[in-house]
Design a protein around this nucleic acid. Sequence first.
DNA 1: GCCAACGTTGGC
DNA 2: GCCAACGTTGGC
Length: 159
Amino acid sequence: MRYWLIKSEPDVFSIDDLRRVGREPWNGVRNYQARNFMRDAMQPGDLALFYHSNATPPGVVGLARVVGAPYQDATQFDAQSEYFDPKSTVERPRWMLVDFEFVAKFPTPVTLAQMKEEAGLEGMLVLQKGTRLSITPVEPPHFERICELGAWDGRGVGK
DNA sequence: GCCAACGTTGGC
DNA sequence: GCCAACGTTGGC
């Protein structure tokens, strides 16, 4: 199993939104590196730290899980969508996504400030200066440490 | 609102 | 293929 961090602006789609809908296509990603992670590297069952960006405060607020195989992001073909991509065609779609399902909301959010101070988390991609990538891989020890800091009891995973 | 960092675009 | 201009991200 691999671990990830996915960013979302809570004004657009928050951890509470994910809990409410249960499962969500991770659409609107328009960065090739992030797309490649979803298309080529994610496996069903992988866990992701759910990060609120452009939030007060920014930080990891819970967990999500990859469900199903990658497929085309439908919004790229929708002229009414803000994610419409006129250069994408049905024959050769540019943008692929996976679905995420809700796993847990942390009892205690782990703020970005806290993460920066935490010695065990140094080297995390999301903490590096200028990292705007909306999806990044996460090392298992970093993942585990953040779950501890979030006071997550482990509920939501397993069978 | 500001602005640094970064990715993309398009002229050449 | 270079690179300046531009748009976006996202913390503060």
